[in-house]
Write a protein that binds this DNA or RNA. Structure first.
Lengths: 129, 129
DNA sequence: CGGTATCCTAGATGATACTG
DNA sequence: CAGTATCATCTAGGATACCG
């Protein structure tokens, strides 16, 4: 599972792509947010929906299902009326949350700079066209 | 820029979505790999293409342009014949690479477990359908 | 060598309605 | 409450051809 790269190594790098496949799943529009919302404690479906904000019901369902299939999230159903479903992080999910929170923290520290850079480019383009 | 969440706080969370927007850009299919390939030293366009492997020319162009617009990557053109273009990480790009490499490292440590879990679910579904 | 331009498709996402 | 089902839209990404 070596991701180091010898200089100018030609051809494809299968390990890179296996890792990339997982990363691009983690990096979809909602996954990281969902995991973040589960760090503190288990949450119910609609609770997560409110916390995340702006996610459609369907996408929350899919996101949670993917996380469950990858072993990051545990789904527990309480057969009450009305039904209650609680989502929590597995051990692997908790360990994932550590680098994820570090990344989120980096984004928070740098988001002003990123957004202002994007904005300035936009203005520049607007001047040209 | 508070990402902490008071319990059951209703409504949308704009900060979450600003962060999410950046994260989902970072998490696309190629960005993280591209940044990783630039950590060691600057690289030329086709060098990156070879290192990443499997990326189309167009997507590499787009990925690098996005990173440049966000201030992560510096693009330096040497007006030689044939043309030579070198990409390197900016200071912000270097600082980004730290949490990114930690995340990549986490994936490497857990990828076997994730892939086997996915595979076992696939077998299970194949038995049903 | 390091790109653009164009076209195309699968999949991601959203909106809405319905259900146990 | 916690979903499914269905339909519509948008975009990421690939393939290919061309360019300075």
């Amino acid at each position: 599972m070596d991701m180091t790269v010898s200089p100018d190594q030609p051809g494809d790098n299968p390990n890179c792509r296996r890792v990339s496949a997982v990363l691009s799943r983690l990096g979809d529009k909602w996954t990281i947010l969902a995991v973040t919302m589960l760090v503190e404690r288990p949450r119910r479906f609609n609770e997560l929906k409110r916390l995340i904000g702006g996610i459609s019901q369907q996408m929350l369902t899919r996101t949670l299902k993917s996380l469950e299939q990858d072993g990051m999230v545990l789904r527990k159903v309480y057969p009450t009326i009305p039904p209650k479903v609680e989502y929590s992080l597995t051990t692997m999910g908790q360990s994932l949350s550590e680098p994820l929170l570090q990344l989120a923290s980096w984004v928070l520290k740098n988001i002003e700079q990123i957004e202002s850079k994007r904005a300035s480019l936009k203005i520049h383009n607007d001047e040209i066209f």
